[in-house]
Design a protein around this nucleic acid. Sequence first.
DNA 1: GTCTATATCCTGATAGAC
DNA 2: GTCTATCAGGATATAGAC
Lengths: 198, 198
Amino acid sequence: MTLPRRGRPGHDLDAVLAAAVTLFNARGYDATSMDDVARSLGITKSSVYHHVRGKQELLRTAIGHALDGLDDAMTQVRGLADATALERLETLVRLSVLVLTSRLPYVTLLLRVRGNSAVELDALQRRRAFDHEVTALVKAAQAEGSIRPDVDPATAARLLFGMVNSLVEWYSPDRGNAGELATTVTALAFDGLRPRSP
Amino acid sequence: MTLPRRGRPGHDLDAVLAAAVTLFNARGYDATSMDDVARSLGITKSSVYHHVRGKQELLRTAIGHALDGLDDAMTQVRGLADATALERLETLVRLSVLVLTSRLPYVTLLLRVRGNSAVELDALQRRRAFDHEVTALVKAAQAEGSIRPDVDPATAARLLFGMVNSLVEWYSPDRGNAGELATTVTALAFDGLRPRSP
DNA sequence: GTCTATATCCTGATAGAC
DNA sequence: GTCTATCAGGATATAGAC
């Protein structure tokens, strides 16, 4: 994402973005001023405006990065033509966990957006499209008989990704391997907390 | 919660609180000004200050109501002396879903708090205490053999309540009975999405 | 790329009349 | 219980020098 910085002082857009996202996540977007962002970089507010058009652009860029990751995961899953719906859904859960963990600050920010501006409304719309596709996968897996038929597909989809998305509330890279976590999440989602008798 | 309003104009604290919480949830606490709250009630900002000492007090009262509900649920579960750890955990999940749905706006607000002030830090501390107790329950259920031993108790507890708490992102009272939803959540959490062979 | 200085507006909160 | 008027501080954003 970042081109190698060639020597010397000063920051680039990626540095400003990273600093902003960190603060947005820690204190909230609205509670973070451009001056906070500037001071966290050791520069002045005006200097920040040299790199970025405005506060909203920081938000738009950051949540766009998160949405692109999730869309990529969905695109990969769509490509699994020979797989069952259950396998596709399991793969989507696993890939989503990996996106959440690898782009943690960006996805964290995305999941806190409330639709307060055009930028945020766009993000919510893209999230809704993702959710609808998850619901369709659940429905298809039910038709296969590989997911219990006694739950509403939309509800199951929401609870499933509610669990997945809740990772952003506590996960940190040093708190364990992302691949193992993806396995745990998938196991709990599809097989439950109770032991399965083999 | 509200005494029957005896005739005529003017609002009371509960009305101001309800209006504030609605806006806090829709746009975020920081993005909501006291003037927004006032205008949504059809009065001026100064009139709001007649009912409430300040913006923080609105937040404190609202999230206190949510925390009290969750603490009550935990207290009930602690009282089940004859129950297994699994039964206690299942009961806690069910009661938590009922608290989330019955106090939806307050719990929604609580779950979005980031620790930006003394009020918010207090709330986070009470949430942490709740989480620790859930982890202890999971551990006890594992010791009984009623929860799979291959997952870290703290991780399982977080994912479990991540799923439960995600309700606030989409539930609305007219979207189905809360008791049924609690049953669905419990079934998915403990038995998973896959069908169980009886 | 960063700075100082400034414009403009909105914020939470208070005083005091009706 | 609501109003008008007001305050001090902080917000986003811009202009222009270095």
